[in-house]
Design a protein around this nucleic acid. Structure first.
Lengths: 242, 242
DNA sequence: ACCTGAACACCGTTCAAGT
DNA sequence: ACCTGAACACCGTTCAAGT
């Protein structure tokens, strides 16, 4: 392994992000400074700027790194027993994500606050979408569900479909990029492709109010169903009046 | 109105918090500095420290101020038409809260992040709890529901019942304080009093994992019910097989 | 009593300089 | 090519001093 004259391994983006992640776990949120990260790497603060654009870039990378852990954790889950309903599979994935996030208390906020989705985040949402599709949900329902579950699970609330607004970019490059996306994130691509365009939801734009009300209604309906159950009325728990 | 020699109204905690709130609306989150707040009040930054303990104290007051707006907005709502189900009433309150919060993008995060609940926040939760009780929910259900809805509505996720851990304090003062609380926040008091103590939820402590799973299950069940409806199975929508 | 000036120990970030 | 030293324009916060 190459070493500098001072006897330490050379810096890299990964080493910087890793050090920052470790530090964020140890130190209170917001107390993370470039100088502290540098200290941990036995380096002057200014050396970091060769590997990250600025502090925001570092925080973005931090969020993405945690979502990578979510994906690794999801990959380790036992395959669901045959006959498991999709809800059970989704539940397990969301709870696994929560488990990882609880170990990095700063992470949910960081993931929540950034404006863009990195590859790891897209991967997580694509996998969750695939579970819903496999369960028989329509594209519209997958879309709403991912909003409702995603905010709760990994705190993401930015425009889900706002991949890259077609404008300044070359039309050719855009199409190629979208084709590549479809290969890599097939469930998301299917969702975007099949979603009802005559609704208030247009391609590349999510109606935040609609998504909020969708999630809110799910909660209210569920609470009301439990109230009924408490009160002794059967109210058709899972099945349709079986 | 009294004025200083320089010709400006004297500072007060309210004026400081108001200026900070206006500034937070205008400037990007995190860009709020003591010096900027002071500038807006035509005062040196150090003068603020006579009215707020430190920046954290100011941010806390900021959050509380916004929740006061939520309460004012809720008070202006038309009384629900007779026969309106409690879900409709709760829905209206949560959507009204969201309306206000959307005008102060920084507020949800701020409310979310602080560790304690001020009087305004307790007021909001007490009113919401009262709606659920009036709808016939049990104390346990109110408790779970307030967790599930509260996080979504005003981003609050700290321990709901962690009012003041009985320890160093005088027992007498504690009892008096709790009695006073019961007068001021009767629905919350009822919830705490009636909640099932044999469950994992003990007085003054909420099981975060349990609340998370409660909210998650509501979402999953609601999504599954919609999938069934899409697929043409009636699945007993609102009523019990009516 | 209420505000100010000067100062302290920090920030993120730049840029020319070292090796 | 990669890191450092010195510096700049900021932070929150203190404390003695002004009025």
């Amino acid at each position: 392994m190459p070493r500098t004259r001072a006897g330490r391994a050379p810096l890299s983006r990964d080493r910087v992000v890793e050090a920052a992640s470790d530090l964020a776990d140890a130190v209170a949120t917001g107390r993370l400074t470039m100088r502290l990260v540098a200290d941990r790497l036995d380096v002057e603060a200014m050396a970091l700027y060769r590997h990250v654009a600025d502090k925001d870039d570092l925080l973005d990378a931090l969020a993405e790194r945690v979502v990578e852990r979510l994906n690794e954790r999801a990959a380790q889950l036992d395959p669901p027993a045959p006959g498991t309903p999709w809800t059970g599979v989704a539940r397990e994935r969301v709870l696994a994500a929560r488990q990882v996030l609880l170990r990095h208390p700063w992470a949910a906020r960081q993931v929540h606050e950034r404006g863009t989705m990195g590859p790891a985040t897209l991967r997580w949402f694509d996998d969750l979408s695939a579970v819903l599709f496999a369960g028989g949900c329509s594209a519209d329902l997958v879309h709403h569900a991912v909003h409702a579950l995603g905010t709760r699970a990994i705190g993401y609330n930015a425009e889900l479909l706002d991949v890259a607004p077609p404008g300044e970019e070359e039309g050719q490059d855009m199409l190629a990029a979208m084709a590549a996306m479809s290969q890599t994130y097939p469930a998301i691509a299917r969702m975007v492709g099949e979603i009802s365009h005559d609704a208030s939801t247009a391609l590349g734009w999510c109606d935040d109010q609609e998504e909020f009300e969708f999630g809110l209604d799910l909660l209210l309906e569920g609470i009301e169903r439990r109230r009924r159950a408490e009160a002794g009325q059967p109210a058709a728990p899972p099945g349709p009046c079986s």
